[in-house]
Design a binder for these strands. Structure first.
Lengths: 126, 126
DNA sequence: TATCGTTATATCTTTGAAAATACAACGGAC
DNA sequence: GTCCGTTGTATTTTCAAAGATATAACGATA
């Protein structure tokens, strides 16, 4: 089918875009996407799951669940938590977490490029 | 970052895949994806929104809302409804709907290819 | 005019996920 | 031993989306 025929179907007054979501699944269930990445970065900044969650208006419970899922779905933990001790404890992200984040950023870039390419194609600007 | 370093992070006992969702937005809100496509195809088969909705375990209310959104987001209607008359009425999909469906199928194929390519890359089988 | 199955719309009920709340456990500093 | 802020976990509450229910309107047919 030619894109040309779509031009007469779509309303030229409106703007159309191709959009989507992307994530990494482990054993069939999603466990790594933009949310976890932002959470990891906030933990890296603040040094605690608690503060990181608050920073992004997320409940501690949900944040903990995400971190827990992350750690159980990879070979080496992405976050090491410590309860008790000076300042009551805290959490730090590992080298592995940093590597996963940079991989995800590049993957995401390729996805954004795909979306933009398809949007241009839809609006036959290419 | 080299994919190679990821190999030591991921658990080799588990299987990882890149997955996602894709849709078309009009004026910033999603209005066309796999759901509407299935609904349109069911209307085409059954000749009625009612039967089409039942076929896919969807409430008539929701089906009607989808169809209504579709029709208001394009230049020419995708579904023409008729209430009353022989058999009480019914609905048919237009040529434009068929064209949008085939466009969507091809778009979806390209997306699936993207996902498979990225999954292979992640598992460094390529 | 009565019948039929559909479209169209309003209202009430359910229910399931997210948020809020509460509290125990931890362990270093003092 | 007490204090602190964090992690860890259970329980309760909220709320919005989905579903169920009810009913009017439609128009060809007979």
């Amino acid at each position: 089918m030619a894109i040309k025929t779509l031009k007469s179907i779509l309303n030229q007054q409106f703007s159309y875009t191709i959009n989507g979501k992307l994530w990494i699944e482990c054993m069939g269930e999603r466990f790594f996407g933009p949310g976890p990445v932002e959470l990891l970065e906030n933990i890296n900044t603040t040094g605690s799951i608690n503060k990181a969650a608050k920073e992004m208006n997320m409940s501690y419970k949900k944040a903990w669940a995400i971190i827990n899922a992350l750690n159980t779905n990879v070979a080496k933990p992405l976050v090491v938590m410590k309860s008790g001790g000076e300042k009551g404890g805290g959490s730090v992200i590992t080298k592995e977490a940093r590597q996963l984040i940079t991989y995800h950023k590049k993957l995401r870039k390729r996805f954004i490029y795909f979306l933009e390419k398809e949007t241009k194609k839809l609006n036959h600007l290419s």
